[in-house]
Design a protein around this nucleic acid. Structure first.
Lengths: 192, 192, 192, 192
DNA sequence: CATGAATGAGTTTTCATTCAT
DNA sequence: AATGAATGAAAACTCATTCAT
């Protein structure tokens, strides 16, 4: 009889937002941003078209909030992988990255397809460039401390390889096994 | 006022087709297939909207013909790089690939963004997977003949790295210098 | 925890209704009926969207009740201005009308904008026509009794002028001073 | 066989634009801007919805162009009514205005209903205020030259009356005869 | 071969209205 | 009595495609 409390509304809102954003990530990643309709997202999330506009100003706003929410997830990583021993830290990063390649494929797809469109989605593009430079610096530092010669070039190579693996995994889809390759890499770069 | 000869017509047709396809490649690559309008392509090519339908059945048909024309360009490569010495052949491939990364960026963008959409553009997707497997085999063969240990894993790594470099080049755009890196790679893999 | 008495409920209802109708009048008048959303009215009144439907069946019903409430205010006027002396009565009407032009601008705006849409809001339109004819008759009677020649035409002129003044006041907004003009009119028509 | 010439296209465009603007004026005036749909305008003009967007960026852009086109028509008037004799000139203005009240009712409706919404359509509002002030000055000058006492107040009255007549004509619609009243006004103000 | 006006299906967006709490 | 999440019909707008010239 009495109306829902503010906390209850808050919870409902959060849940619905989550569902919608999850559906959007899934569909944007699979079919691309432009090819995905608001209707599809709503149906996938189990709601009606109109509700999306209670939570997001527009389709593009939904995309932006999606990207923003990803930036936050980014910070978690560094906490988990940091280590005094550069070999251990690089191993952590490699294992973490391979795990993300499996778990967050849709996300990866989405960012890639958007970042390619430099003009249209500059906010994604900047995100990608920043991330690239950050990792380049970290990798170079770790590799030189590990004692790998030509640390800069090797860092570039390693990073390019991660991006490339991600892309190949997208293309080849489910049956793309990387477990052995993961161990090969760790052996090659982290154990000295 | 004499009527144009058949050959002249043919030539006009070919030129117009070329212009349209070049414009389409440029725009599809930069803004994505879905976000590019027929009008934009026509204007970029210097023609009117309607003319496009004299040469292509539909927007998707234009895309398909574009992709087809690329497959043809593909065959040229093998002729140029093949060599009895595996080290020389790998060097040729590396140099050729780096050259393509510079010269055919738009094409690379387009294929990437389309291949990501596995369902929507299966014909592009298949193309990408085929190419991936072909190169994997070639690289593994060359590396093992060169005497690189773990040839299979290294082949996978090399290939992933090329894809990754391509993507990074797209993100970072013009000021991404790879000359030194090219030499580093050739030194590392081809000279034994 | 004692339940509210019926009278208390009644009072709350009346207050809420009043607030909602005041907010609706304000917004309908300023932005127009179509351009005003239920949400805006609710927020302006300090309530939630849903509550409006406890008091009014629909947006159009709210409008109708608003107009109806105005008709009632109308009856008060005649009591206040009636006088045996036609000059005094006309002066009363003029003074009363000028006062209304200041005090009830929003209402005036609303009726005008609605009455213009003859088809869509016929109930407002009829109201406006009735009022027009009523005043025309009264003015003609008063002016002829005062001894003004051409009483019919002058009545029409006077009435048109009132409507026109109202509209001008709307356009020019706050800094439109009519005090001197009011005295001018009274001098011209009521003092003989 | 040969394509249409530029001039031919120009003509087609102009005709279509005209038809659309005429339909829009008619419908905006009758039903209001907000209550009129793009579909209605298109159907009334004899075209499809989509064509409107070949000529106008948006519904509001269509409105703006409509209003702009009216400003132009405005200039014509002054040329027609100007006269050295103030009595004749005032008579010209009165006759012209009454004619416009008959011929351009829809336009009058539209401007009135838009000007009322001061905030929403400021470009119309400014137009209305400017026009008001211009005429006020002209009327005051003419009346004082004719020798009417209290020229300023009488000018205000005359102008208010025109606006009021316009509005009344809208309300009462077709059967509102003003011919006698026109002569009455001319007799009263222009013949001295 | 070439043009761009015209179409309409499909998409994004808005908003009155309902309803569980 | 009161809340605001959820719905869906209807509106604005886009754009591939057709077609008369």
């Amino acid at each position: 009889m009495s109306p829902r409390s503010k906390a209850q509304f808050e919870e409902i809102r959060d849940q619905s937002r989550e569902k919608i954003m999850a559906a959007a990530l899934q569909l944007f990643g699979t079919n691309g941003y432009e090819a995905t309709t608001i209707n599809q997202i709503a149906r996938e999330a189990g709601y009606s078209k109109g509700l999306l506009y209670n939570y997001f100003d527009s389709k593009e706003d939904l995309l932006k909030e999606l990207i923003d929410s990803l930036k936050e997830g980014e910070h978690d990583m560094m906490d988990k992988v940091v280590d005094d021993d550069p070999g251990v830290m690089l191993e952590n990063i490699i294992r973490f990255t391979f795990k993300e390649l499996s778990d967050k494929m849709e996300l990866w797809k989405l960012i890639t397809s958007l970042a390619i469109q430099v003009e249209r989605f500059s906010f994604v593009h900047e995100l990608a460039v920043n991330k690239l430079n950050t990792y380049l610096t970290i990798f170079e530092d770790l590799l030189s401390r590990i004692g790998v010669p030509n640390a800069k070039a090797e860092a570039q190579m390693l990073l390019a390889m991660f991006d490339g693996l991600g892309m190949q995994k997208l293309f080849v889809k489910t049956d793309y096994q990387l477990d052995d390759f993961e161990e090969f890499l760790i052996d090659k770069y982290c154990r000295r």
